[in-house]
Structures are given as C-alpha cells and as structure tokens.
Nucleic acid binder design. Structure first.
Lengths: 137, 137
DNA sequence: TTGTCTGCAAACGTTTTGCACGACC
DNA sequence: GGTCGTGCAAAACGTTTGCAGACAA
C-alpha cells in the first residue's frame, strides 16, 4: 500500500522515512490542495509525536525533487499539490474549495520570444464556483 | 502636483489625507511592484512619524476601491501595483525585478463556460529575465 | 462636531531556525 | 561512527488588532 511511495522516494534518492511516506500518501489521496496545518493535523492523529517542523521539512524535500508542488493564493497560506504538472487553480470565495483548472495559454510563447527564460508558471482565479452559483445567494 | 491624486481620492469618496496621497504618489511613480516595507521605508524618510499600520490601512482602502491592486508571488511578501487592469508578472530569480507581462489567454473563456464566475485573475512567472540572460552566468 | 484616520504597542498566525537526540547505513 | 532526519522550543517575519488621540469634512 505504501510501496508506491517508497518507490517514488527511492527513484529520487530521497531517504525513506515513515513521515515522508505518510505526507506523500496524504497528498496523493487528498487532492484538495491542503495547507501545511491541514496535513499536520490529520497525520498527527495517527502519529501523536509528529512535529510540524517535520511536515515542513518533508514537503520542502519533496518539492525540491519536483515530486510535488506548492501553490500560493493571496490571502491564504501555502498549499501543496501532489500533481506536479503545470496547471492552474480556482478558489471559490464562497465555499473555499480550490478547483483545478486545466487551460493552456498559447500566448505564453510571447514571453519566451521576448527573451526571458521561464522556469515556473503560476496562475489562479478567484470567484464563485459552479456549485455555489447554482445554490444561489 | 498632488492634485491628480486628490482628484482620484475624491472621485472615489475617500477622505483625503497626506498619507494616502503620498502612498498613491509613490505607487504611481514607482511601478516596481513595491512591498509594504519598501513603501513604508521610503515615505518614512520624509515623514518620520509615519506608521506602517497607516501604510497597510491606506493600501487596503485604495485596493478596496479598485484604484490599485495587490499581487502575491510565492516566496515574497505582498506587493502593490498602481496599475489596476488585469496583467501578469514575471519575477526574475536572479535580479529580483518584477516585469509586467501583458499577454492574454483566449482560453480563459473555458472557465466561464464551465459555470464558474471569475472575479479575479492572477498569473505570474518565475525565471531569468532578458537582461540577466544576456549577462550570462 | 462627528466620524474617520493615524500611530503606537501588542497580538497573531505562519514559517524558519538552532539544537539535541535518535535512526539508519 | 558519521550522516541525516526528527521533534521541541524559541525566534523571526509579515500582517492584524485594539485603542487613544488627532484630524478632515
């Protein structure tokens, strides 16, 4: 059940520890773009001696190796995402959910053509999601 | 010289105070996407009794009225921009400069068509800017 | 005069740091 | 045995809050 994550860590020459495995598993199973505190609170239940510092460390290590990515939406804390491909996000101001947005922008090439070297692409939207729109109010 | 900003504030029914005028003037004349601290440090030189709280308050008020906008780039503090139209940013990891990017993404309509109501659009890139590319290293 | 704005100090929440202990090659 | 990871506590950082006095309209 955890072999998948053991493999992933080993492939990236990252030492395998229970904390890293659990962090990775949590992110894989919870595609809600959780904050550090959400991850910590959840994992602490099964491992009461878990430290938040370790969560920070684990997430940073995983991110450095490109296994996961972080996202920042103004007004909210840092979040993490198991999905490591470029994609964007939509934050619903009403329900707070963050929805993945998979659009591509053909004009990104314009930046490349202007001589800059793009390493990271980040995009997000804020508004009212489909579900909340239907509910009215 | 400040009449321009007095007018802008009055048009938006915002009380005119020297602090608000100076904040607005600074943002207009410094299109570098300054942080709160940068604005504060600079304005404090001419007005030593200036408080950072006031800068926070002024910026928030101006933003609420849509006169200015804020931007967040992960790993850096909150920044403010006199330009209030939708546009994107490019942070050079080398020199730290933030460059305006004026590309449009035709596919944004896909989000609208999917039923979500978009109120805000934020996008930014990270990499190495043209100038730093030329310098080599 | 009335309500709002300013400036100070303290509080707050998130993230980082320093360090001792422990686990693993 | 030496390196690396963990967990704790404290510090750092950016931002927010509460409040008293000052100011704009």
């Amino acid at each position: 059940m955890l072999e998948k994550y053991v493999k992933l860590l080993k492939e990236n020459s990252i030492k395998v520890t229970p904390q890293r495995l659990e962090t990775l598993k949590y992110l894989d199973e919870n595609r809600t773009h959780p904050t550090v505190d959400e991850i910590y609170s959840e994992l602490k239940e099964k491992n009461p001696s878990l430290s938040k510092t370790t969560i920070y460390n684990s997430l940073e290590t995983l991110k450095e190796h490109g296994i996961i990515q972080s996202l920042t939406i103004s007004g909210t804390e840092l979040r993490y995402d198991f999905e490591n491909k470029i994609h964007h996000h939509f934050l619903c101001k009403k329900c707070g959910n963050i929805i993945d947005i998979d659009i591509e922008c053909p004009n990104i090439n314009k930046i490349l053509n202007s001589g800059h070297e793009v390493e990271e692409v980040h995009g997000y939207f804020k508004g009212k999601c489909k579900k909340c729109m239907k509910k009215g109010s």
